[in-house]
């Protein structure tokens, strides 16, 4: 065997491994979508679920998932942005910085069910927020923050130091250099990271079971006053999300069509996450073109 044949062998092997990965993904997606697609209909997507009889939908769960996602992002985005700007632009290498980094690493490797139980003890019990969208959003912030911080930091890190020096040498202060040159240049990859983490948040179940709760009370979609208990916008109401719903009907669902509902809900979940991923690429590219005046 000479070097050339080894090279061919290795190349072939790597292609095979890559092929297997793609195949697994395709099988998984295909299985979920083919099983779930026939269940999908406008009424399935919009009507409330039913506990004991067939024909229930996932309307409220879908709305809850989206609302929870928006709240989570509203809370975690500013914190993650501030943390990553501090870590990448201001923090000097040293003990404190490395402790912060280690803590973020540890936080990002916490199992989500642990985050959920922590959220239950702190937000639901201690803060008295009870099972609510707000508790869920705060728990998901804990879950999401390290990943988001990391991805924004990477986005900032990818901007060359020449840009920072260029700004400072023009007589622009550090804060202005960061906010007006570095951040805009990093926006495309920040948005991609944001949307990708949105996909993860959207599909999260374990962290929500003990925080946002497992019930989806009926909502009055004509009432948009966030202080009313049946208003969709009320952040203090319990809210079962799509992912939690799938988990629940598979473990204790007693409606006669539970497997069909679960298949349909799973398909919706997968499709939404797929859309998030595609959007991330598309918006990232669009923003890059827009912000750099089309290069």
């Amino acid at each position: 065997m000479n070097a050339k044949r080894y090279d061919k062998l290795a190349t072939g092997l790597l292609y095979t491994i890559a092929g297997i990965v793609v195949l697994i993904l395709l099988l998984l997606l295909g299985f979920i979508i083919i099983r779930g697609l026939p269940q999908l209909s406008w009424s399935f997507l919009t009507t409330p679920s039913r506990a004991f009889t067939a024909g229930g939908g996932i309307g409220i769960q879908l709305f809850n998932s989206i609302y929870l996602l928006i709240l989570t992002m509203l809370i975690s985005m500013p914190i993650a942005l501030g943390a990553s700007i501090y870590l990448n632009e201001y923090a000097k290498p040293g003990k404190v910085t490395s402790i912060i980094r280690t803590m973020i690493e540890i936080l990002s490797s916490l199992p989500s069910v642990v985050v959920g139980l922590f959220g239950f003890l702190l937000f639901v019990v201690q803060f008295g927020l009870s099972f609510s969208i707000l508790s869920g959003a705060l728990a998901l912030t804990v879950f999401n923050l390290p990943l988001l911080t990391r991805s924004i930091e990477d986005a900032l890190k990818s901007i060359s130091n020449d840009q920072r020096n260029g700004g400072l040498a023009l007589g622009i202060s550090k804060w202005e250099t960061v906010t007006k040159i570095i951040l805009p240049a990093a926006v495309p990859s920040i948005v991609s990271g944001l949307i990708l983490s949105a996909g993860r948040v959207f599909g999260e179940a374990a962290a929500l079971i003990y925080t946002a709760g497992q019930s989806a009370p009926a909502l009055n979609f004509a009432n948009w006053n966030p202080f009313d208990i049946d208003s969709p916008l009320n952040p203090m109401r319990p809210a079962e999300t799509l992912a939690v719903h799938i988990w629940k009907i598979n473990s204790e669902g007693i409606m006669p069509d539970s497997s069909a509902v679960s298949a349909g809900a799973a398909a919706v979940l997968i499709i939404v996450v797929l859309i998030f991923n595609l959007l991330a690429r598309w918006i990232g590219r669009l923003l890059f073109k827009r912000l750099t005046a089309g290069s």
Partner: peptide, 14 residues
């Protein structure tokens, strides 16, 4: 008052 130009051209992405 004392401007600077660097080794690598570093136009801003705009």
């Amino acid at each position: 008052q004392i401007g600077m130009v660097f080794q690598q051209p570093n136009p801003f992405p705009m």
